[in-house]
Write a protein that binds this DNA or RNA. Structure first.
Lengths: 152, 152
DNA sequence: CCTGAAACTGATTAAAC
DNA sequence: GTTTAATCAGTTTCAGG
């Protein structure tokens, strides 16, 4: 699909604030309301926009303890990998999980309320997953930057 | 502020899809439209909801090469830290940056289009930041899980 | 591709229970 | 908390350049 400079600008605006009205967007883009509407629909139908979501304040909802956790599997058999990835998907403390190059196999982003909750998570949930060889946790001291917006 | 079970459920629904109408939400929550409206406004005013955003498909917008990059500073003086954090915030390839416990100081999530773009980013942008001692890059082979939604 | 107008739908407020 | 109803603002459709 075609995808011009105005579409990119539009996507940047929607990534910053999806509750703007088409009128506000039309002003910023120097387009008519209808043109904005048609472009958004085109981008939605084309699958460029995956979803519209609300982002929460971690502190306000008492989930303000983030930990990055490296995980190494015992072996890399197809069965172990599939099984591990499936189990990790079930854990709602795990917001993100990536298969990475390097010394460790996986990197997990874990979000809980505090150290006690993290301990609970490690003991009761993560380490009970089969096939895990070792883990290494790195605590987030400070969030320097965090955005969901892709820039062009 | 008070924050009951219905509010939590409402936040989960809005984190999954913020474009639902109040009527749809009212059905799922067994509340009236007015009650849903009032609760959302309360959560917005209370700062629980930070923002509403569009999430894009990385593949579709040709930004499908993610790299986690550890960065160690030469020294940890106040000046070095402030300067580094400021410069990292300017780089739009860097979606996230955390100050972490452990052997390295920072973990950056970098999103670019491909390996060539990553090389360009490292040579022209990241390593030109002053005070960086060393870096270590880990390439994302596969995204196993990725959500922006906080569960309760 | 774009525009402006008309029709429709949902958000918002107020009232009464 | 609920329902209903009025109003307003935004979305969506459509005819035409």
């Amino acid at each position: 699909m075609v995808f011009d400079t105005i579409d990119k600008k539009l996507l940047e605006l929607l990534q910053a604030d999806s509750k703007q009205t088409n009128k506000e967007l039309s002003n910023k883009l120097n387009l008519s309301v209808t043109a904005v509407y048609e472009r958004i629909k085109k981008l939605e139908r084309g699958g460029f926009i995956k979803s519209y979501v609300a982002l929460l304040n971690k502190e306000k909802v008492a989930k303000n303890f983030s930990v990055y956790c490296h995980v190494k599997l015992i072996q890399h058999t197809q069965e172990y990998v599939v099984s591990f990835e499936k189990e990790v998907n079930q854990l709602n403390e795990v917001l993100e999980c990536y298969h990475l190059s390097g010394d460790y196999d996986y990197l997990l982003k874990v979000l809980v309320s505090d150290m006690a909750a993290f301990r609970e998570f490690m003991v009761k949930k993560l380490t009970t997953i089969r096939h895990i060889g070792s883990t290494h946790s790195m605590f987030v001291i400070n969030e320097v930057k965090h955005t969901t917006a892709i820039n062009f």
